[in-house]
Design a protein around this nucleic acid. Sequence first.
DNA 1: TTGTACGCGTTATCAC
DNA 2: GTGATAACGCGTACAA
Lengths: 315, 315
Amino acid sequence: MTVSRALRDPERVAPATLDAVRRAVARLGYLPNGSASALASSRSRVVAAIVPTLMNSVYASTVHGLSSVLRPAGYELMLGDSGYDPRAEAALVRSFLGRRVDALVLTGVSHADETRELLTRHALPVVEIWDLTAHPIDMLVGFSNVAAGREAGRFLAARGRRRWAFVGSAPAQEVRSGKRLRGLREAAREAGVQPPLTAFVDDGMSAAEGHAAVGALLDAHPSVDALFCANDALATASLRAAADRGLDVPGRLAVLGFGDFDVAAHTRPALSTVRIPGHDIGTHAATALLARLDGGPAPGTRTDLGFDIVRRESA
Amino acid sequence: MTVSRALRDPERVAPATLDAVRRAVARLGYLPNGSASALASSRSRVVAAIVPTLMNSVYASTVHGLSSVLRPAGYELMLGDSGYDPRAEAALVRSFLGRRVDALVLTGVSHADETRELLTRHALPVVEIWDLTAHPIDMLVGFSNVAAGREAGRFLAARGRRRWAFVGSAPAQEVRSGKRLRGLREAAREAGVQPPLTAFVDDGMSAAEGHAAVGALLDAHPSVDALFCANDALATASLRAAADRGLDVPGRLAVLGFGDFDVAAHTRPALSTVRIPGHDIGTHAATALLARLDGGPAPGTRTDLGFDIVRRESA
DNA sequence: TTGTACGCGTTATCAC
DNA sequence: GTGATAACGCGTACAA
């Protein structure tokens, strides 16, 4: 018991005892058993996060943001990827709850019924990220995907573009990307231009697929003068597809990306893109979680971190 | 006890009992407590992985590879990033050991003394990844960074390039990148060309820094006719820096990247690059771990997964 | 096939 | 300031 105290709360132990404990710890290489601690205290000091994919860098900065504030606070990160599948997400939630994580970070606001049931039963702090909704499960840190799509459309309209196309996953496959398409459609109506054409890809992050899909689109619809891509990998591939056809960007075709990937500033032409504060989403979400875990006043935080349109050369 | 059996080994329980248990489980929303299970069995069914950074996609596919074989086997992934700092890595190892993870994945083969001590005391399966060494801690799945650099150099030499430069982190900062530089130097000697120039960046993944550093290099040394970049983000930035100066790639300047990022095939010109089997490294490492965890014959696996030079347009 | 007793290594609680 | 005792919720070993 004294050892336990000495390690967790050195102040409450006599200096001499503390010293003796520390010496013994060093000599034995003693490391407190986290499982036992978790069992006894019912606090695991583990936070789990579920992102749609680990395959690429989209959510990497968010994960980094999470870990950069959780770890210094003594929490470890458990990570899972749902592959954009709500049922896979539910399975992960179940597993994480079984491991008694202290809190959960969920990407997006649409979840399987099972997920909601589980979370209702095992009440624990939850943050949903990367989107907005009027009825979050608990806390929320994100931005409006619909607004992002709408602003993208307004941006294109303001530059005189009249024939738009959207490049990305089908809405059924990727909810947030679908919301951006919805916003784009609204903007088209608002601007009095035709509804945007669509070039859907199976794997929303595959530059190769994007390259092919955009090529087909450009060939079939030569009148297209603006592309809004669901991410910068697709946008980079679009740049290439345009170049292959001798289409000047932005002269003949505007290309607007999404995500502001690291390379966006260095493509040729440099990508205009929608920048999402991915890292900040992570740090804010983690901070909200910590406040709650430290027994704070439990505010149902709902934070809109917004987005920016970064104008470079491609649009 | 019967419940415990019913859940873990349904075969060993009478059908009727099993059914009753399942009904009760469903009704109560019962989820076995992982901490208690871990404490009683001294198996946490958690594997921890430490990568240098979560900020970008370099290690993303490896992490995905790990999780794609670990999770179906009932293991969860705990993730940490060392920021390329051996002392931070040691701190993570300590934390993970305290949480009694069943196995550990470490990136690279050079570690702080403390890390080695910890791992010696708390013997557990360990896989080192993304490099090779004659004396791994335990198991190893990677490729030779020196050989990668050497082959990159031979590739440039074979294309008649005589004045090479390396773009990346300083060797002291990033060991594996330093090994590739070493390989490049060997190839230069072999080819009878001058030792490569170097443009070091502080943040090895920052395209912005790369853009500036390469610009300065090209201005100061107009004779440079080949660039070997430590990663494709830097290479993309180099492409742009060359374009800014009206230097034809590959005519006047060859650019060879590293990593084969998703966008590499779609830059203009398309990037020639060294492809690392990042995903495979993850799946192989996880498979080796599982074999060991399932009480296998504990072979000190040492796997060289190699690399390829993908020739596109830039070199 | 099922159940009993005990221990895993901590922490909460309450004496001292 | 320190220690004794009793959980925490499982799994192991063995008995019924």
